[in-house]
């Protein structure tokens, strides 16, 4: 961990699940069981596979494929509609719920390749911008 200028350091909207690195990229965080290898999102205290408690915190890959999705047209005031919500399968064997951005809702397809993007995700109680994650179509894929 390098300590950078704290006043300008990016703030993750959910530091337990999402780490914003100094270079501005982000990583989803989870656990892997050192006993049986089972992966988990988010971080867990024990493994549901073998019930072992020797878990390491891991950073997941930043690419995945879309399992399914919906265009959300009614939500809470915190989330202006419409937005695309999906489940993204990551290579480590976890399925992550995420908004899908960077393309028109009509262009979202089950099975499409996606990559994680760091995007603004609301503000802190003090008014500082918070950084969260959305998945976008993988650069160089599709007809973008």
């Amino acid at each position: 961990m390098t300590v950078t200028d704290q006043t300008s350091a990016p703030i993750s909207f959910r530091p337990r699940e999402f780490e914003v690195l100094a270079d501005g990229t982000g990583r989803l965080l989870g656990s892997r069981c050192r006993g049986c290898g089972a992966p988990f999102f988010p971080v867990r205290a024990a493994c549901s596979g073998c019930l072992g408690t020797d878990l390491e915190t891991i950073r997941f890959s930043t690419t995945g494929t879309l399992y399914t999705f919906s265009v959300v047209r009614q939500s809470t005031p915190a989330f202006p509609v419409p937005y695309v919500l999906g489940y993204v399968d990551l290579p480590e064997g976890v399925r992550i719920m995420s908004q899908i951005s960077g393309c028109e809702p009509d262009d979202v397809k089950i099975g499409m390749d996606l990559e994680l993007a760091v995007e603004e995700f609301g503000t802190s109680p003090e008014g500082a911008p918070l950084l969260g994650y959305r998945f976008r179509p993988l650069a160089g894929r599709g007809d973008r």
Binding site: F13, S75, S98
Partner: peptide, 26 residues
């Protein structure tokens, strides 16, 4: 729309119960 508890990571990215079932329907 009903949502999961606000502490849940999925609620934090915009999960609503209708959206979860919509995804299953699709």
């Amino acid at each position: 729309a009903l949502t999961p508890d606000p502490s849940d990571p999925e609620a934090a990215v915009g999960a609503t119960m209708p959206a979860v079932y919509a995804m299953r329907a699709r």
